[in-house]
Design a protein around this nucleic acid. Structure first.
Lengths: 211, 211
DNA sequence: GTCTATACCCGGATAGAC
DNA sequence: GTCTATCCGGGTATAGAC
């Protein structure tokens, strides 16, 4: 894929729109992030957003899928729960992301919402993924083997989303602390997370993942 | 306060609008619950909704405060956590409520949203209330006294909201089960909740609360 | 005090010109 | 690939009928 050719500009515009969406969302919030507001931020006409993303819902949705993709890429070389914690940290530095995501999940709750299926599948996909990691912890004797891994996964997933809502309302709320504490209640305490050396570990991992 | 006089009709209308709002919300969802849709359901003109509740946000907000009031009233004569569980059950039978509430909390997340303050206060009020009940449990030796009651309260509050989102997406999701399990992880297991006789207990309590 | 009709504004979406 | 013009629908403001 070359940067030249007739498609280069389009791809850049597309990305610029996605970036601006996040930016505007984090400064003006959901109600402020109208198509025209985002367009203004990019420096184009509102109709152009429609050209790249046919509807507003689609635009927001694409920000989320891109985010999911980023998360997956950032997770190289760390254990699953460390990834998760790191993700939470990362998101806390990009408030627009969580704001946009939470708005979208809840909106998609409407029975006839076009993205409803997406979130159902997302939950269905994440749950066993987390459950598998819990099974690993059970195998190594950290987590009580009597506990149902799927159930813990569902609860942790719910907890994190609830924490995010509260954090949006109270930005000084320490999601990492609360989530770490929750993990511990289920017997999950990856050693890396207790040393206070998280950042160093992440740095090293990021370094190692680079080509 | 008599039912007669020139105000009776107004109070009835007002209530009818609140009821219809919930009704329409649970059938048509957030996007479907437009002012005109609700007005149609009540059988009046859209402008009348404006007369009673000046804005749509206010209307939804009033449904929520009424709900909070109901919850408080329904809690007579039961322990706090039993109340809570019962509330969850009750809500699961009225899907519009949770749908509306979750939509509203997340929307109010915008920095300049008029109801933002309300939710901040709501959280601030609920947390110590729950924490107090946890202290009671600690005093009677059920919950590990080393645990910070406020922190547990925050986590439980977050967990329930996260569970509600997932439930909205997957109506067969058993919030009561999941929440009960979460409570147990924190050492909270009110005896009434383990007998399977919940309904009978609620009936008796309701009976006793009647004049 | 209760209610409607009407008019207004803004946001999202579409059509078509350049 | 980009814009302008236009439409449509939802929320809101107002005037006034009953």
């Amino acid at each position: 894929m070359s940067d030249r050719g007739p498609y280069a500009k389009g791809r850049e515009r597309r990305q610029a729109i996605l970036d601006s969406t996040l930016e505007v969302f984090s400064t003006l919030g959901s109600r402020g992030a109208s198509m025209s507001a985002i367009a203004r931020h990019v420096g184009v006409s509102p109709a152009l957003l429609q050209y790249y993303f046919s509807t507003r819902e689609d635009l927001l949705q694409e920000v989320i899928t891109a985010w999911d993709r980023d998360n997956a890429e950032r997770s190289e070389g760390l254990t699953h729960f460390a990834d998760w914690l790191r993700g939470v940290r990362h998101n806390m530095q990009h408030p627009g992301l969580i704001h946009l995501y939470m708005t979208a999940v809840v909106e998609a709750t409407d029975a006839d919402h076009p993205n409803r299926e997406f979130y159902a599948r997302r939950y269905e996909g994440l749950t066993p993924e987390i459950a598998q990691e819990i099974r690993n912890q059970q195998a190594s004797g950290n987590v009580d083997p009597a506990l149902d891994p799927e159930r813990i996964a569902r609860i942790l997933l719910a907890a994190i989303e609830g924490l995010q809502i509260r954090w949006l309302h109270q930005p000084d709320f320490d999601m990492v602390e609360e989530f770490l504490f929750t993990l511990e209640r289920f017997g999950i305490h990856p050693p890396e997370l207790l040393t206070g050396e998280l950042d160093a570990i992440f740095e090293r991992a990021a370094e190692a993942a680079r080509p």
